[in-house]
């Protein structure tokens, strides 16, 4: 009985030592950079990689649209052949799809790319003013106050819409996006440039699964 008790305490001590060693080892192999590390498998990826997790609007759609529209706009004669970089204001791109798309991300990306090109100058957004009509009203009001004149003196405005057609059956789903953008002279209302980007995606349902 006594012998059994002594053996048992030895075993316990050995077990405690093992645990301590494991803890120390774990401390040595842990992160040394001070960054937080979660339990999940999280990795950095290339933001330019094609993302096809679902058929919903995603980062690849945003990049393709912004790149295509920016290049088309820079190639238009109103920008390319302008005597000096025109002053542009980016207005809202209206979401007419059946998805909650943050269209601000499209205009933000286009603005950054256009600014980097040096071909245009941008005026600060006048959020909450309703598109072209508001632009005209704003300009009219501002011209009466010289201190606001410069801020309101827009050469062109850029607007657009995103539309989608989605078809789904039990076997497959497809979505078609049409993104249209326009360069408008706010004084005359004339549409000077317009282009569209079309994107099509489809997914199929697996035949057998859990």
């Amino acid at each position: 009985m006594n012998k059994k008790t002594i053996f048992s305490s030895h075993t316990l001590a050995l077990f405690a030592l093992l645990c301590l060693a494991l803890l120390l080892l774990d401390g040595c192999t842990g992160p040394r950079t001070g960054r937080l590390q979660g339990g999940g498998d999280t990795q950095y990826g290339d933001p330019n990689d094609v993302e096809t997790i679902t058929s919903a609007w995603g980062s690849t759609d945003l990049q393709l649209t912004a790149e295509s529209m920016t290049q088309s706009l820079l190639d238009s004669r109103w920008i390319m052949h302008a005597a000096e970089p025109p002053k542009v204001r980016l207005r809202e791109v209206r979401n007419l799809t059946s998805e909650h798309i943050d269209t601000k991300s499209i205009t933000d990306k286009i603005r950054v790319q256009l600014l980097k090109s040096g071909a245009v100058r941008f005026l600060a957004d006048t959020a909450n003013l309703g598109e072209v009509a508001a632009e005209r009203q704003f300009t009219e009001a501002a011209t009466r106050r010289t201190e606001n004149k410069l801020m309101a003196d827009t050469d062109y405005i850029v607007t657009g819409t995103v539309r989608s057609i989605r078809k789904t059956t039990k076997q497959a789903a497809s979505v078609f996006y049409q993104i249209t953008m326009e360069l408008v002279d706010p004084q005359s209302g004339e549409i000077l440039w317009a282009d569209e980007k079309e994107l099509s995606k489809s997914t199929t349902t697996p035949k057998i699964g859990w």
Partner: peptide, 10 residues
């Protein structure tokens, strides 16, 4: 649920 396989064991 809608995206589950056509022949779904569950």
């Amino acid at each position: 649920y809608e995206q589950r396989a056509i022949i779904n064991l569950r």
